[in-house]
């Protein structure tokens, strides 16, 4: 295996694990649509950055952070349900992204890779960023496990016990935005959703324990990304689409396994 291939595989495994952790948090917040909203806000930011000649990664994080800010504190203050605001922001982000892609030259634009992703273009600095974000998520989840458990179980209960519940939720959403941003170019804005939601949902099918489900979500997402990369290399398919297929198959297998276990009991 040469260094180029090593980079692909490391990118798939590390990026996948980060998406799995982010997906677990977003599903636990009962806001799966927030994942797609953050992904598309990052996409819109990256496309606008590309158009303006500014780093797409920086602009993608700006987009995700802006969406996280609007979906967290602003939604709370305006008393708009986060799910409603996610839907509005999602359509706005998608509109801005497609407008930007159109202005950048449509299907011939290099910015199209942001839409579909290209794991094979991941360079060492981007890989380092992916690794740093995934590692930070794993460390934060391990250190603040009891606080995260409390807040995800019920923000109202956690607040009433004396925890800074809103601050913890906003921090989780912001970290998810970061994880989505660093994986945007590799997986693509449209494909990222499957890597966020499918492995985390599959993990919940396989276990009823919080810590195990969190670890499983990271592992299944890493496995889905690596499996998707393997499938792409084997069949010469687009990596992003292959990852979607594998992560969907992982969820289907987990759900079928749970149904079989339920019938055997």
């Amino acid at each position: 295996m040469d260094t180029l291939e090593l980079r692909w595989w490391l990118g798939a495994v590390l990026g996948g694990a980060g998406c799995g952790i982010a997906g677990f948090f977003l599903l636990a917040l009962d806001l799966p649509f927030l994942a797609v909203c953050l992904a598309h806000a990052a996409l819109a930011g990256a496309v606008l950055g590309h158009l303006a000649g500014v780093s797409p990664t920086v602009c993608a994080f700006g987009g995700a952070l802006l969406a996280a800010g609007l979906l967290g504190p602003a939604a709370d203050r305006a008393r708009v349900p986060t799910a409603t605001l996610s839907g509005i922001l999602f359509s706005l982000s998608l509109g801005v992204a497609f407008l930007g892609l159109g202005l950048a030259g449509g299907g011939r634009s290099p910015a199209m890779s942001l839409l579909w992703g290209n794991l094979l273009l991941l360079d060492w600095p981007r890989l380092a960023a992916v690794a740093a974000v995934t590692l930070s998520g794993a460390v934060l989840a391990a250190v603040f496990l009891k606080e995260i458990k409390a807040v995800l179980f019920s923000r109202a209960v956690a607040w009433s016990c004396g925890l800074p519940a809103s601050a913890i939720v906003y921090a989780l959403i912001a970290w998810c935005g970061l994880a989505i941003t660093v994986n945007l170019e590799a997986v693509g804005g449209l494909m990222l959703y499957s890597l966020l939601v499918n492995p985390a949902a599959a993990a919940r099918q396989l276990t009823d324990r919080f810590s195990r489900a969190l670890a499983l979500a990271a592992m299944l997402a890493a496995g889905s990304a690596a499996g998707g990369l393997g499938l792409a290399l084997w069949r010469d398919w687009p990596a992003g689409a292959s990852i979607v297929l594998v992560s969907s198959a992982v969820f289907a297998l987990a759900a079928a396994g749970r149904a079989v276990r339920g019938n055997l009991r």
């Binding site: 599903l27 636990a28 009962d30 179980f153 919940r204 276990t207 324990r209 919080f210 489900a213």
Partner: peptide, 9 residues
């Protein structure tokens, strides 16, 4: 006493 059903505690 609301709780998120997706959070396995």
């Amino acid at each position: 006493a609301d709780h998120a059903p997706a959070v396995p505690l």
